[in-house]
Nucleic acid binder design. Structure first.
Lengths: 199, 199
DNA sequence: GTCATTATTGACCGTGCGGTCCACAATAGT
DNA sequence: ACTATTGTGGACCGCACGGTCAATAATGAC
């Protein structure tokens, strides 16, 4: 009954996400977004509202993707303890080859906007709460499997792992060599997850 | 022979630093800087060049202050192991009462500008290299004092502690409660610095 | 084919930005 | 007191930004 959309909304969100991830919120102009999306300005505004709303949707899109991946890793890895170690290793590989270390979009956004935009802050808070629970579940599994001492507080340890991971993500942006980064992630994993599996 | 400055350069740098810390680089306008410094636009440009240069000086100012404080804590604390624990505790107290958790200016700046401004990135890299060395020295001291096992790699452990600290700094910005934050810092300290001193 | 409806485009707008400049103020030397 | 020199403040500039809008294109219903 009317002219159909010529673009896929998710595709645009992905493109916007990449752009915001590369440059940050403030440093991304509508021109940039037009370029990476291939859309005219009017189409973007008609479809998403304004820059901030597009950003928020792209950010939510990113978070969902991240959580999906987290869930997959945590549940698909045979030994739970290995999954936990992977959490600390993952940021090291991210973009190691391409040389561009842009960290985590949510972390970047929280740093840039967390003080000024309550919605971004709330998104960050909720995300890390969920992450903590997912990780804690995995810790319980590791305890059941005997990979971790049973007495330790799963939520507390989950928070420590998450915090360490965020530390690694950040340090990866500071020009640390991949080798140093790898060693650090390993060191943190060894300290936080005492029993580890082989070489 | 000429009209003297009516302001103290360091004072302006401190004011600018606070402003950039509160709002970030892009979200700070020259108007903001005029307001917090009490200076006219012309004076700022005459004294500091442009916005970016003022920012870089404010950032360097911040870094120097931070390192001074780090040095002081690391050397003035009687037992080195306690100093190391303090590194992880410090971010928790920072701004806990006022409620504003603005993290670390250098970290914020690196997240916002690290990809786009090589100078900021270089500053971050150099800073963390220095921090790592300072912490490593303190670790050696802790080993000499018997507070830490002597066999562990000081630099590696220093990097792990620094990374964990940055993780805590970041998590403090995500709306975590002070209690959870405190528990996390304690947990990380306990895992990274096995031997600790009393209740 | 006609029409109603929605998508698309790009010209256009007002605003706030970083940055410049100039008239004026304040000092030190003589 | 006069002058040279530098600091100060704010008016001013051009620009790029986010955002709007109207003309046009593409579809489905009938």
């Amino acid at each position: 009954m009317a002219r159909p959309r010529a673009f896929d909304e998710t595709q645009i969100l992905n493109a916007a996400q990449e752009q915001f991830w590369d440059a940050g919120y403030a440093a991304t102009s509508m021109e940039d977004l037009m370029q990476v999306s291939g859309l005219g300005k009017g189409s973007i505004y008609a479809a998403f509202g304004d820059k901030r709303q597009l950003f928020l949707r792209a950010l939510r899109n990113y978070i969902e993707g991240n959580h999906e991946q987290l869930r997959r890793v945590l549940s698909d890895t045979p030994r739970a303890i290995d999954a936990l170690r992977m959490l600390l290793d993952a940021p090291v590989d991210e973009g190691a080859d391409s040389g561009v270390r842009r960290g985590c979009l949510l972390a970047n956004s929280t740093c840039e906007l967390g003080n000024a935009d309550p919605e971004v802050l709330a998104l960050a808070h909720a995300t890390y709460e969920t992450s903590t629970e997912l990780i804690a579940d995995c810790i319980s599994r590791a305890q059941d499997e005997g990979g971790l001492p049973a007495q330790s507080d799963a939520i507390g340890l989950a928070r420590a792992i998450l915090t360490a991971q965020q530390g690694i993500v950040y340090m990866s942006r500071t020009g640390m060599t991949t080798a140093a980064l790898k060693a650090t992630s390993r060191s943190l994993a060894d300290h936080l997850l005492p029993a580890h599996s082989g070489a």
